[in-house]
Design a binder for these strands. Sequence first.
DNA 1: CTGAAAGCGCTTACAG
DNA 2: CTGAAAGCGCTTACAG
Lengths: 330, 330
Amino acid sequence: MNQTKIYDVAGAAGVSLATVSRVLNHPEKVKEATRDKVLRIIKEKGYKPNANARGLASRRSTTVAVVVPNISRSSVAEMIQGIVDAAKEYGYTIRLFVSEESSSQIDMWGDVIASSVDGVLFMNDQMTSELYKQLELAPVPVVFVNSISERKGLGGVRIDYEEAAYKITKEMINRGNKSIMFIKTGHKYSVNEMKEKGYIRAMNESKLTPDIVTSSGDIDINEVQFQEILGCRIPDVAMAVRDSIAISFMNIASKRGIKVPEQLQVIGFQNTRYALLSNPKLTCVAIPIYDIGNKAMSYLTQLMKNDDESVAKSEDVIVDYNIAWRESTR
Amino acid sequence: MNQTKIYDVAGAAGVSLATVSRVLNHPEKVKEATRDKVLRIIKEKGYKPNANARGLASRRSTTVAVVVPNISRSSVAEMIQGIVDAAKEYGYTIRLFVSEESSSQIDMWGDVIASSVDGVLFMNDQMTSELYKQLELAPVPVVFVNSISERKGLGGVRIDYEEAAYKITKEMINRGNKSIMFIKTGHKYSVNEMKEKGYIRAMNESKLTPDIVTSSGDIDINEVQFQEILGCRIPDVAMAVRDSIAISFMNIASKRGIKVPEQLQVIGFQNTRYALLSNPKLTCVAIPIYDIGNKAMSYLTQLMKNDDESVAKSEDVIVDYNIAWRESTR
DNA sequence: CTGAAAGCGCTTACAG
DNA sequence: CTGAAAGCGCTTACAG
């Protein structure tokens, strides 16, 4: 019930607590015989150093903060799984910070820093200049995950969403499709803006008129809107910024008797499990979101072991994506 | 860049660091004028106490551990959102521990305790007696979340899954359905075993023969299996332990030209977003998973403020569920 | 290779 | 109501 302290281990092993500490932190500095004895006792007693004390004394907590907006978005959860797995590999522990709005992220930032983490994995799609300022003052490295930073020295692991949207649009044009609809949401997510940009570029290049629909985040409202749209026009292709919106659109089309993919092709963005459970199965730009989390954490560990005085700066790392061709396209 | 320390605040305010600490931890013990001055300076300097130091000195870290298997399951993510929101309300911070297998949860447990949290929210569906032993020795309160503990003094917030499965099965029988299939997975999840039990009880009560199918966790394998099953027999109702399996079954049925819900009714368990994106929309036993997380965290805060010498024990708290009737049933 | 000691940044009895 | 001091459980130069 009372946790074993380093003193207990030292006592039982007949060494000083400094030696026990060294066995844990700099084993190469301890004679093998001593080390083995201490390790045995540590195991016997199930000793684990108190994280607070260790963090306070060493200024390294082997903990990183993961700052995300709303964890229940399925892509966020999967990304965290990637982070967690990499963290485990490198011996880091996670402190989770979830913020609803970007304004609250500023308040939260103080807590993040005070929690004395060794680094931060940061996800935010609605950056403000004040937030940038805060991040730039961070006493530890910050790496963006699947979101876009506009500042030098503050980068992260992500996809080139503009390119991805451009290429898939281009591909659909090359396949002979003329009317390609782009469905976005009202939110000002920078990654979604990149997708829109890529789409527009591809359309313009081919002298086609962009057809952009802004949908709600709510499924029920979407459905009404999609009914209206499909009552007026059936595009060759509908591409949505999120899988769930694409599926919602596809379902409404099916209900109206429109054949997918024969009359209408539908493309999503992300490749969540929704895409495999839809009927027909959704073609989408597959974002390796697990890998993004995983790589971001690995990258952060590199920055954290920088012994320099200064805080290591992060740069953008662009990760490859691919296209999962399924039944909603032909 | 260098973080403000309590000394800096004390200096600027012309008081001792003890007073600054008191303003933060026992404001009622400080004269109002002093308190206001200190608070002003704290705000000015953006001072936040170092979490490690505070935790070490006070033995309270205002941090709780959240221990879950695989965060990317959508129900887990939503539950964590509930936890996070309640944690924020009570001023707690989250340390996230994710374990793949139950064996690794034992190893992990040492880390959980060493991380000096004030309490633990624990989710595990495959308990072993060794794990129970560890949990019972925990120096802080432990509350189960959406999983079942068989030990006294170790309880948690959850649904009565047996009752839920019993009632929905009963309801479908009362509506005149005779052949009701239950689709489970190979995993030994205790909550799923409860669902199975409830289903069997309802069937037996009505002298109907239970029809239990064990499916794989993999969508592709499932589909092959479901094709085979539907080639042999079409039940009046198919009920699955998870939404995703139910949807998968429903999609295969649709592809075979079986009309849902006319010829086959399908019911899921959970009410994830999948259920709204399926076509037709899935009827399911709706588990208020966000609330479960939220309540578990609230409950834990109560246990943590127990001033007693002993560690507060937790008891089971059963949360209500309801049924979301949608298009896959009639 | 090992130990004694200082110190990490706080909190909290204990005096006053 | 406030301050001086001890102590939380570690790590890490510094001697030896």
